[in-house]
Design a protein around this nucleic acid. Sequence first.
DNA 1: CGGTTTAATTAAACCGATTTAATTATACGG
DNA 2: CCGTATAATTAAATCGGTTTAATTAAACCG
Lengths: 338, 338
Amino acid sequence: MATVTIRDVAREAKVSPGTVSRAMNDSPLVSEATRQRILEVVKTLNYSPNLTARKLSLGKTLTISVVLPFLTRPAYTERLNGVIATLNSSHYDLTIHAVQSPDQRDVIFQDVIHHKRSDGVLIISLPSKDSEVEFLSNAEIPIILIDAFHPELNMLDQVFIDDIEGGKMATRHLIEHGHKKIGYIGDIFDTPFRFSSSRDRYRGYRLALKDADIPFFDEYYAEDEHGRLEARHLALKMLNSNHPPTAIFAYSDTTAWGVMEAAQELGVKIPEDLSLIGFDDIELAEYLKLTTIHQPLFDSGQRGMELLLDKLESPQKNAVQEKQNIQLIIRQTTAPPK
Amino acid sequence: MATVTIRDVAREAKVSPGTVSRAMNDSPLVSEATRQRILEVVKTLNYSPNLTARKLSLGKTLTISVVLPFLTRPAYTERLNGVIATLNSSHYDLTIHAVQSPDQRDVIFQDVIHHKRSDGVLIISLPSKDSEVEFLSNAEIPIILIDAFHPELNMLDQVFIDDIEGGKMATRHLIEHGHKKIGYIGDIFDTPFRFSSSRDRYRGYRLALKDADIPFFDEYYAEDEHGRLEARHLALKMLNSNHPPTAIFAYSDTTAWGVMEAAQELGVKIPEDLSLIGFDDIELAEYLKLTTIHQPLFDSGQRGMELLLDKLESPQKNAVQEKQNIQLIIRQTTAPPK
DNA sequence: CGGTTTAATTAAACCGATTTAATTATACGG
DNA sequence: CCGTATAATTAAATCGGTTTAATTAAACCG
């Protein structure tokens, strides 16, 4: 079962390897007659070109790298699905680099971008450090940032939402219902992964409070690693305090889910005793009847990949920073306070 | 910014390219002095070897392919996570081939296995057709099947659960509560993707009924594409029929979720009016307090990847078929009938 | 009919590494 | 001091394609 090479085909078809190559790549420099003969031989020998050799010769990797956090949140999976769906029609391979720990993050960043493993890179939900700006902007291959906005990286294509605006939007909705005691439960700000959306949504929250002249109290802010259970703990504590909030803005739908569990545990009724708003609008949100801020997850992956493919086609094109729309989805977890 | 090649390093260090190669690959055939000198130059020139050239030269792709369905179910994502986590420590790249349509399935199977794009393949949740047995068993690279058991492919490593036993286990639990009118809601049997677990769980269900001398009625079986909404429709219909079941075995937790929605809609109380058992034990199941059959999802991916890495190390090793344990998790959706 | 295009094909260089075979330098033993 | 074993290095072949430059063959034209 020795592997068949282009030279075997050439010999059999009584032509040179170059001609075989051209025949297979639809070059107009081959006569129809020989092309047919060659394709015939290709079929009988069951020849298929060695991709590695092809890549080396072409000077391309025909590969796209995706760097994203370990798939622990539905939001990541959805974005990845958007990426995959869009790539599927092209001839590129997709290699994933899922970041599981902060050290890994840095290694992977360096590795993927520097070592020319791929023709282009998509970075999802992993914001860049300021110290990385230079090295990212000098990369020789196109890099697209999805949900990882950085203002100084405007030479890169970016797809993002305005988390500050989203935070405002959510908080305003609660305020409009008449709430004044509004808690925020979010992710750790200073995570080594550099996730920044919790910080931004919190900023929006504070801005909305300020706009409405509602004072902020420290006990209305709580943070921990992302997760349902973590959020449940934080919510239990906040709801059990002396001055429990009448509404909570949860950083994500998963966070909100944890809050709902806590409320249930304490016999706090939603939305009667507590209004709750989440963020993302994952599938679960509908089932939970959770009021939330919708952001396009699948679309962001799709759009990012489209931009990358564009860039690979025409590298000279200017980078675009594309802000995607977000939207308040009112369901049944928000109401005026009693 | 011309790319630095091994020849540049060689010239700068006043040695031949071969020596540079050896120095970088820790060959003992280089004196310590020259190795140091070379590594010095490597650093100043910021050289990193071209992976494609390396692969071609080594005759390896240093890549592992994962073929799996589009990530529409938490179970797929979990398995993939297991794969990723295990691979991460190795030096292989991971390329994903997510199957979105039946035609794609076949193309990808052929492509991935035949074209030597990778050193090994993991196939997840995509059972093989009988017509593929030969071509899979003749593959030149190792293939591992995860959740895609096929009895005739015993020359391949396989990681699987006994879905028939699982189906029995679930059904027996309902029977032990005293149920006799037990419905089954599952996936379409004859899906072009060849998913087979619904069929097997259904078989287990029938066997358990038979063992307990409980007659089966056609109206207690319903199938549709997998999904919460689809399951909801099926359940609505089944629960609204003249002889509604007192218990339902749902093919998956997601399916069970749909059934719960339907029950809620109809005012059918769980577990008082209807017992419900699911399958998989995804994160959501705990929240739903759903009684279910637990299967190791993350672990299956992990184990599959371990087996693959083993096989790549020592190809002569015998293939193993590894059955993983499943387990009844009793929560709050099952009870005796009224 | 000879010179010039044009079309089709071949030969050879190239992509950038690894590795085998050949070569040089060094050490060692009698 | 010479032959030989050993260590270190170089030169060249190789992996399997693509592509440029060179060559041949056929067509065209005045």
